[in-house]
């Protein structure tokens, strides 16, 4: 089945859409951050599966192993995960401050409070 051949891509796409849906449709700021995380996770998955070679082993030189997975995407994603964690942390910190100032974390209510008189 050609369409299902690259099932990893399908997983990525589905995760990405779930993430976007949360971003677009949810007014709760924390849910938005969760959506953002799912979206990012889908991209991490994309990179990781790109580097995986079927039947390949971890890239450690050892006797009798000739097929290795590509380690570079995995290394890159380590960096990206760090960035993602930092973003989440910052986002949550902002939500805390927003809650302190507005006493709500619903986007609509915040927008209503901000509307120019």
């Amino acid at each position: 089945m050609e369409v299902l051949g690259h099932f990893n891509y399908w997983v990525v796409v589905v995760l990405m859409m779930i993430g976007f849906y949360a971003l677009i449709a949810r007014g709760n700021l924390i849910k938005k951050i969760v959506g953002l995380n799912i979206f990012q996770a889908s991209v991490f998955l994309l990179f990781i599966t790109l580097g995986k070679v079927t039947g390949g082993s971890a890239p450690i030189i050892a006797e009798g192993i000739t097929v290795y997975s590509n380690p570079l995407p995995h290394v890159l994603i380590l960096t990206a995960i760090v960035v993602g964690v930092a973003t989440t942390a910052l986002g949550l910190a902002l939500v805390v401050r927003i809650h302190e100032s507005y006493s709500t974390i619903e986007e609509n209510e915040i927008a209503d409070m901000d509307r120019e008189p």
Partner: peptide, 17 residues
Amino acid sequence: DRRALSAAFTYLVMGTV
């Protein structure tokens, strides 16, 4: 201004995307 917070949040989401 407290609106700086929501502005930063919007920017965070957009920037990350």
